[in-house]
């Protein structure tokens, strides 16, 4: 065991920073034992790298049309073939990673704080605030999320930003439920009472003392949900309501390749494989994170 390992795993950390790093390192050691979760993490990292370096990885411009070379099978010039406009499928998949990542990140950034705020407020304040907020949450939960997202997109109009808003509007209720449950277990703790005695206001208690403790279970849930978000976004794209052409969105690519499925199968199937692999990766990663961060939920 090297010196830094001993320092990280020590039972008597020298500083607060050491303790925190040590906790992360222990979590990583536990996470590392789950091979499938590691695979998921690797794919997610790969997705991020591909999205970041898309112009250097792609062999062609994603929207460059070449009608002389339409619907070509996979070859050395076009690794995954070409689509109905002669665009390189591989390059479009590579650039599609950006769109997928953009949607997932944006939905998480919008929906998680909404859920966190609603859930912690409901759980901490209780009474009629709790009743009203949870009733609203139940309404959204009692509703198939894709249908609701479709209705929102119908109102807002098709497009990638509107798809993000629609998905975020349907994604927050489970987070609110989780945050509320966590808040209920800690709201009567001594340390909350201590904070209150020292004169901390409601807002300070919520943001400084309650929300941080909800983060780990929320992170797990958001990661697991990312697979669902990717599938919903791809579904919207497939229906022509998400990202609009010529954007290289995977769901929309499946949709446009559908017409050629019987003769040029690669046009529609390959983007679907990309969707599958990425959402599988998020599922595996989420399962692994759950075991480390939230052992109670383990099934």
């Amino acid at each position: 065991m090297s010196a830094w390992q001993a320092r990280l795993l020590s039972d008597t950390p020298r500083s607060r920073g050491d303790a925190r790093l040590g906790a992360i390192y222990r979590g990583w050691l536990q996470f590392r034992r789950n091979r499938l979760a590691l695979l998921g993490l690797a794919i997610v990292i790969l997705l991020i790298l591909v999205a970041a370096f898309a112009p250097w990885i792609a062999t062609h411009h994603p929207n460059e049309q070449n009608l002389a070379q339409r619907l070509l099978p996979p070859s050395s010039a076009h690794w995954l073939g070409t689509d109905e406009f002669g665009r390189d499928v591989f390059s479009r998949i590579v650039f599609g990673a950006r769109i997928t990542l953009y949607i997932v990140a944006l939905v998480a950034v919008i929906a998680a704080p909404i859920g966190l705020l609603v859930g912690t407020a409901a759980g901490y304040l209780g009474g009629w605030v709790d009743a009203v907020l949870m009733r609203v949450t139940d309404v959204f939960l009692a509703f198939p999320s894709l249908i609701l997202a479709l209705a929102f997109v119908a109102a807002l109009g098709p497009g990638i930003e509107n798809a993000v808003i629609a998905i975020a509007l349907t994604a927050w209720p489970p987070y609110a439920r989780i945050a509320r449950a966590e808040t209920l277990t800690i709201r009567n703790s001594d340390y909350i009472a201590a904070a209150r005695l020292q004169g901390a206001g409601t807002a300070r208690i919520l943001t400084r003392h309650i929300m941080p403790l909800c983060m780990s279970s929320l992170t797990v849930r958001v990661t697991l949900d990312m697979a669902g978000i990717i599938l919903t976004a791809a579904g919207l794209g497939f229906l022509g309501l998400g990202a609009q052409p010529p954007l290289a969105e995977w769901g929309a690519m499946v949709s446009s390749g559908r017409r050629y499925i019987l003769d040029q199968w690669w046009v529609a199937t390959i983007p679907g494989v990309a969707i599958f692999v990425v959402s599988l990766a998020f599922n595996l990663l989420g399962d692994g994170l759950r075991d480390v961060l939230d052992p109670r939920q383990k099934k």
Partner: peptide, 22 residues
């Protein structure tokens, strides 16, 4: 279970059409 939670249903439909019908 894992595949069921990860596969896009519209894609599975298209592929199954390709295989079992086409």
């Amino acid at each position: 279970g894992l595949v069921g939670y990860s596969v896009p249903i519209f894609w599975l439909g298209i592929v199954s059409l390709l295989v079992f019908y086409g």
